[in-house]
């Protein structure tokens, strides 16, 4: 008998929807947030943190997903000296075409660009910011170079064009 999905199963589903692998905690969080905005998410709650929209529940759930063997987390050292994680799942999403299409496209966006795009969307939706890209640049000056912002806007437009129950906000 299968009841409603639990947090760790939902977290594992996100990795599966993204094609079975997500490189980086930031990318996992931002894909999950954008899925929520498009009506393809799992009900994780997000708030603004250092890297933009962040869900503590998702962060906890992905750890438990590891314990259940649904997701494998491998930690690696980045060239800049910090650590990052690679989440992989033996599963690939076959249940919801729109979710897999969207997550599969989002996972191909660079981590920094995805963070900028998700942050701008969050600022518009939650903080009612009238110039979300400008505010994103102001809050993240070291990341939001003109080039990266342009790439983030292009990625956002691509993601907005994919089919989903809800549109991404026009920003």
């Amino acid at each position: 008998m299968s009841g409603p999905k639990r947090g760790w199963e939902k977290a594992a589903d996100i990795v599966a929807a993204a094609g079975g692998q997500i490189v980086g905690r930031t990318k996992l969080q931002k894909i999950a947030y954008l899925l929520e905005l498009r009506g393809l998410g799992y009900g994780f709650e997000f708030e603004y943190r250092h890297y933009g929209p962040y869900s503590e529940d998702l962060s906890d759930a992905i750890k438990v997903a590891g314990a259940f063997g649904l997701v494998n987390e491998e930690e690696r050292r980045a060239t800049w000296g910090g650590m990052y994680s690679i989440y992989s799942s033996g599963q690939r999403d076959r249940g919801d075409g729109q979710r897999a299409t969207f997550a599969g496209a989002a996972v191909d966006v660079g981590a920094i660009e995805l963070e900028l795009a998700a942050t701008a969307a969050y600022l518009h939706v939650v903080e009612r910011c009238t110039d979300p890209w400008g505010e994103t640049k102001r809050r993240k000056p070291e990341k939001a170079t003109d080039e990266r912002l342009r790439a983030a806007k292009e990625a956002y437009a691509r993601l907005a064009g994919l089919p989903a129950p809800r549109p991404l906000p026009r920003i």
Binding site: T26, A78, W80, G82, Y84, A111, I112, E142
Partner: peptide
């Protein structure tokens, strides 16, 4: 000054 990044991507120094 220390190096920073997002996931595996480097940003620069702060």
């Amino acid at each position: 000054r220390i190096k920073t990044g997002v996931d595996e991507e480097a940003i620069g120094d702060v």
